[in-house]
């Protein structure tokens, strides 16, 4: 149940980043968050690079959820 709850939360957070509702997040989307989050451009790039699995230039909801799950120690 915790997993379902976290997936739901991950999906909500993903939508905060995916402003255009493309279904994926680009590095540019990530950089745009700088105006809303207390992180530097460099930190946002670090986040993107940490979450990205296959270096294709965008983050999928799955990669996003996995990153969140890994961080809090739950296998999503």
């Amino acid at each position: 149940d915790v997993q379902v709850e976290m997936l739901e939360k991950a999906r909500e957070l993903f939508q905060l980043c995916d402003k255009d509702e493309k279904g994926f997040i680009t590095k540019l989307d990530m950089q745009r968050l700088q105006s809303e989050l207390p992180l530097t451009l460099e930190q946002l790039e670090t986040v993107f690079d940490s979450l990205e699995q296959n270096n294709n230039g965008y983050l999928t909801p799955v990669e996003f959820s996995m990153g969140l799950g890994k961080l809090i120690g739950i296998d999503l």
């Binding site: 957070l13 905060l16 207390p38 930190q43 946002l44 940490s50 969140l68 961080l71």
Partner: peptide, 29 residues
Amino acid sequence: DPNMKAGATSEGVLANFFNSLLSKKTGSP
């Protein structure tokens, strides 16, 4: 030491990122 910083803090940056998003979601409208 920039090299040390990159490796050691990426998890902290991730935590910071997700926490910020969460507080944005649940915080002010």
